[in-house]
Design a protein around this nucleic acid. Structure first.
Lengths: 138, 138
DNA sequence: TATTCATTTGCAACAATGTTGCAAAATTAA
DNA sequence: TTAATTTTGCAACATTGTTGCAAATGAATA
């Protein structure tokens, strides 16, 4: 387990530090998207706010996690599947936000549908964000 | 023109103030999504930051504008079409964010595609956000 | 039009969130 | 073990968003 997490860091040519292991562990344990604030709470404030900002940014840059657009003003982060690599995210799944419990899920098996973009526009990436009630809240 | 804007406010049972007229005018003139910061700049700082926050919130509550989720941490606002009413947005179109010029468009003619949500989940609303290059930047 | 009442606005103060520089500490490479 | 590099924590700051309250403005009535 710890081993697997260490490998993620090794593969991205990042130093293996207790801090980074802890944050990655949080993502694996919770298997849902986390905000900066979530991580601050879950970690029990053992490390600095700034460190969290910098660690998350590093992970995004390296393709270890990806960001999820949300309707309110908070950035959510979630673990990437194997397909992501440095500077190039393949985040081809739908995100689901539960209005009851606030949990954000990556629906890895739900593909992004085709969208008809008007002539003249060139699409690079499509984000689909669904709001509703999750299976635990019904 | 001014007349039409006044009517929007009247229909929502809001007082007609120079402030609100000005902000609505900005939305109509620019015909694209605006952030709080955009409005602050465009208005030439003639009114207070707090007033802008409160006005935007009021407009959202009344269904005059809607928010658009963005990958970075900024909320974008855009004028609603006729279909929206108080407390109930029908925001059934795709949003397009140009990576070059940063403009956010409401693609009013592009409908939200169907998304297959897993069993147990209940979908209320679907947001589709496309990144790419707009027709003015190619 | 003048007067009253409700709403809106601006100010001040505050809270939360995000950023930068720099020295100390930890990790890696030799 | 030592030297070079990277990461971390602290402090200070910048930006963004919130709340209470008094003054100003708009709406309603006479």
């Amino acid at each position: 387990m710890k081993e697997a997490i260490s490998n993620i860091l090794k593969n991205s040519q990042l130093s293996i530090t207790g801090n980074r292991l802890k944050i990655l562990e949080l993502f694996q344990k919770n298997s849902k998207a986390l905000s900066h604030a979530d991580i601050e709470k879950l970690s029990g404030k053992h490390f600095d706010r700034v460190t969290i900002y910098r660690t998350l940014q590093t992970f995004v840059d390296k393709g270890i996690i990806h960001t999820i657009p949300t309707a309110d003003n908070s950035i959510m982060y979630a673990l990437c599947k194997e397909a992501c690599s440095e500077g190039h995210h393949h985040d081809d799944h739908v995100h689901f936000l539960c209005d009851e419990c606030g949990t954000t899920y990556c629906l890895d098996n739900v593909n992004i549908p085709d969208v008809n973009i008007p002539k003249g526009f060139l699409a690079h990436q499509t984000n689909v964000l669904v709001n509703g009630v999750c299976k635990n809240c019904r």
